[in-house]
């Protein structure tokens, strides 16, 4: 017998269920007066530097039906590509930007919205640049373990073509599922498809 490694094992995930709003965005679901505001509902303020953008989208199941009980979180760098995190050693991120947002889909339309800024360039493991991107995490009733994906920007054609994470995707035909649609000045639409022909690429990060 060899020594034991003694690692613990990550706790198993369980679905967020239909009532995730109660715990994560209570004001949104009418439970007011417990917390002053829902966490992640404001990513920027008047002093935040960078190009203002709005990202909207819906999450679809394998039948093409919109999910109306989803919750999404995003995490991104500031306009210079710095993360507002304790283990960001390359510099100090914009103090007026928290980099993290949380949005429930609208009860009726299922649409989520994030008002944020366009992120800068962050280096890959080897130091080469990654194209500007936003990390998404999706939970809902029926999703047993949160799904990770990324959103890229359609106007960054060259950077996207050189992006080392997109390059990992063998089936190039699926890459467009990670690229948002630009619908106006600073306006993007990023729909997510959980299952089927046009299934969004999800990552095991």
């Amino acid at each position: 017998m060899a020594q034991k490694l003694n690692f613990l094992k990550e706790s198993a995930s369980q679905t967020a269920g239909p009532y995730v709003h109660i715990g994560c965005v209570p004001n949104f679901c009418g439970i007011e007066g417990v917390y002053p505001e829902d966490l992640g509902s404001r990513m920027i303020n008047d002093k935040t530097e960078g190009e203002r953008i709005t990202i909207r989208g819906k999450v679809f199941d394998g039948t093409g039906t919109v999910l109306k009980d989803v919750m999404l979180e995003i995490w991104q760098a500031d306009h210079k590509g710095l993360y507002p995190a304790v283990n960001e050693f390359r510099g100090v991120a914009d103090a007026n930007f928290i980099g993290w947002g949380r949005s429930p889909g609208d009860y009726t339309s299922g649409e989520y919205v994030f008002e944020t800024i366009k992120p800068g360039i962050v280096p890959f493991i080897d130091g080469k640049p990654m194209a500007p991107h936003i990390t998404f995490w999706i939970v809902a009733r029926g999703i047993n373990i949160g799904l990770h994906t990324r959103m890229y920007f359609p106007e960054e054609k060259e950077a996207n073509a050189a992006d080392p994470v997109l390059a990992r995707i063998e089936h190039k035909v699926r890459i467009p599922t990670l690229i948002a649609e630009r619908t106006g000045d600073g306006e993007y639409t990023f729909d997510i498809v959980l299952q089927g022909d046009n299934e969004t690429v999800f990552f095991d990060i």
Binding site: T15, D61, G62, T63, T65, L67, W75, Q76, A77, Y83, P84, A85, V86, N87, E88, I98, G99, W100, V122, P123, F124, I125, M130, H133, T135, A140, R141, G142, I143, N144, L147, R150, V165, R168, I169, R174, L194, Q195, G196, E199, T200, V201, F202, F203, D204, I205
Partner: peptide, 30 residues
Amino acid sequence: TPCYKTSVVRSPHKALISMNNTLSEITGPV
């Protein structure tokens, strides 16, 4: 997981793409 019926149409059918952690994954808000 068909025992949990809602998962049937909300589960990705294609394999997850494995990737080594970059700064985007090893950082988080405070």
